[in-house]
């Protein structure tokens, strides 16, 4: 069997395994949503939060478009060899869009559901971003990527989330103090 055929079979198997993971989750979410509708429960996100999430999605698209144009220009100049690697580009793009989307959602109270009564529910973003950074590091460390730039993006994500959460915490404290003063 040729190397190309082995790679193709491996990729197909990988997609099959991935879909085997994804489809029960998707079906579960669908059934849960249908069940909620039948029970007449309110949706997880209210109208204001839905709008904030849509806005965040739109901003993430603009960020992604800007990033791709910038990447294309840098690739065209030929200054850095790693811009030719598609994996580097996709990982950086995913990190960037995740950062823009989640930060925007957190700042506009659209990240966690209104049903989630935990005071620090937005801190979940840190628990997502840490394993994500480890995942990217594994790619970089094994030499599959052409550079460590995706890991730098992942670390920048983590730093940005910390900054966003700190900003929000300060804003909330400020509001609380103002309310107490009134």
């Amino acid at each position: 069997m040729s190397d190309g055929a082995i790679t193709t079979i491996t990729i197909l198997l990988f997609i099959f395994v991935l879909s085997a993971f994804i489809w029960p989750i998707a079906l579960g979410i669908h059934l849960e949503l249908e069940g909620r509708k039948k029970r007449g429960e309110p949706p997880a996100y209210d109208e204001r939060q839905k709008l904030a999430r849509l806005r965040a999605g739109s901003r993430a698209m603009y960020a992604l478009l800007f990033f791709l144009v910038l990447w294309a220009i840098i690739n065209q100049t030929g200054w850095f060899d790693w811009t030719a690697s598609i994996l580097d580009m996709v990982l950086c793009a995913l990190m960037l869009t995740w950062c823009v989307w989640a930060s925007d959602c957190i700042l506009h109270d659209g990240f966690s559901s209104w049903k989630d009564k935990r005071k620090d529910a937005d801190l979940m973003v840190i628990t997502f971003s840490l394993p994500m950074a480890q995942f990217v590091r594994a790619f970089c460390d094994s030499g599959i990527t052409a550079s460590w730039v995706p890991f730098i993006f992942a670390c920048a994500d983590f730093a940005a989330f910390c900054a966003v959460l700190f900003c929000k915490w300060r804003r909330e404290k400020h509001t609380e103090r103002e309310e107490e003063a009134l």
Partner: peptide
Amino acid sequence: GTHAFYTLIAYLLIWLVLEFAD
């Protein structure tokens, strides 16, 4: 805008898979 965003992400992932599958 959100749908266009998902399309672009899907396009990049498909491109990545095709690139690796060669």
